[in-house]
Write a protein that binds this DNA or RNA. Sequence first.
DNA 1: GGTTTTGTTCGATATTATCGAACACGATTT
DNA 2: AAATCGTGTTCGATAATATCGAACAAAACC
Lengths: 261, 261
Amino acid sequence: MANKQGKLIGSVQRALDILDVFNARNPELGTTEIAGAIHLPKSTVAGLIYTLEVNGYLEQNPENRKYRLGYKLAERAGLFLNQYDLRRVAAPHLLALRDACNESVNLALRRGSDMVYIERMHGTNTLGFRSEIGKRERVHSTALGKAYLAFLPQPEILDFVAHHDFEPLTQNTITDAELFLADLACVRERGYAIDDQENELGGRCVAAPLLNFDGRPVAAISISVPLQRMPDTRVAELGELVRRTAAKISRRLGLPHENVG
Amino acid sequence: MANKQGKLIGSVQRALDILDVFNARNPELGTTEIAGAIHLPKSTVAGLIYTLEVNGYLEQNPENRKYRLGYKLAERAGLFLNQYDLRRVAAPHLLALRDACNESVNLALRRGSDMVYIERMHGTNTLGFRSEIGKRERVHSTALGKAYLAFLPQPEILDFVAHHDFEPLTQNTITDAELFLADLACVRERGYAIDDQENELGGRCVAAPLLNFDGRPVAAISISVPLQRMPDTRVAELGELVRRTAAKISRRLGLPHENVG
DNA sequence: GGTTTTGTTCGATATTATCGAACACGATTT
DNA sequence: AAATCGTGTTCGATAATATCGAACAAAACC
């Protein structure tokens, strides 16, 4: 993004690559597997793994000698999340919103081409409890992303569509720049964004942006509902609800200094 | 704590040191401040910071050019937390426990000399939210830690007291090894541990361990209450409650393979 | 507008991470 | 039980590469 001509530190980059190898399908990996995944000799990754392990970013399962992500990540992540007053301000309103519709509600920041969840509350029926905080989804395929984007200054919007890869995630994903801009215009007009299975089949969402004193979006909130419980009539109803809730939170956001994220 | 003769990779260690410089009191730091904190030249940390930033572990506040922890930590932490079936199994019981006493309830793993929170639910009055997941507290000064420790095999307990630094956190913290062992015996007898302002003034906790099929502790749960709402009579009441809840969860923990943490 | 603090650039130096082969350990198989 | 397979670990030589300090540039401050 910037013209900052920085130099990457090789071994640090490789260490971070190791952390990225882990995912939901591969929560535990051995040294050889990790070495294979990042195309480095075993002995090299051994040292990197050891350093990460000593610092708590990896931990070894004594039963199978494999490694998994460590507690230190949770510790540091807690600090990351607490930086955002936003979360504290929004929490009671999200709770009320959740209770009003009894569906999952979300709060997310934009980070580049992704929206990152920083708070999530599920309806009473769904007892998933998976901490999906930190999860990322694309800007262009989510109601969250479209709500955020729609209220940016026009030049930034155009810059986004010019440089963004509109990867189709379902057959409903908007991949055409013109159509996307038209959709954003609709979002502005009606005050909330709609995702009709554009990010995931069987899922519908409505979302609205949180604006600071300047009118600039700093985050977005959404309600996500399985298709079965989300007929067209309810889309408008929940859309209005999320829009009003977002407006209420925005009014509380007299952020004088930072938190613009 | 092993005799594994590993070699630390210097630059990786320094990069991780940078992440550790951030804390609640210093959520944002500039290059010079970071360099001062870890005693390295600015130009060296610049490269490390850049590498961390590119990977999302740090982000720069455009308003003051300072750095703060990045979203990538939350993303990776989500994966860490999801590794523990424990959380999913315990969640409904914790919820019930929370509703039964309307106080904050916690689930924590032991990591070395600390207990690490992996789930936390607050009473309806306290609106604090998930923020404190990942937080660490000492084993010897918390009900969580004492509950966990008390049910370990005796040799491991002795090993712990032999090598642990019983740092006093309040005037109530047990710092004498003999007294500590005596307290653990009480814990075993009554089935739950008590922390009477040993970790923090004004806070009382009761806790009980979660045991796997083997009878080995894998985690602990607790109820933490402000002193004002926790007279001696209620200690016994909530203690029994947390003990019974822990027993219920333990019964569900037929862990055949791992998750021993 | 001048001054101070802060962040960035640059190239020479020597530290230090890398590599591959050989070793040791455990698990699984026959 | 023996043997095999795969895995993780050790080791020293090599060359790559992170480090450093000073000089530069750029904000922030007054």
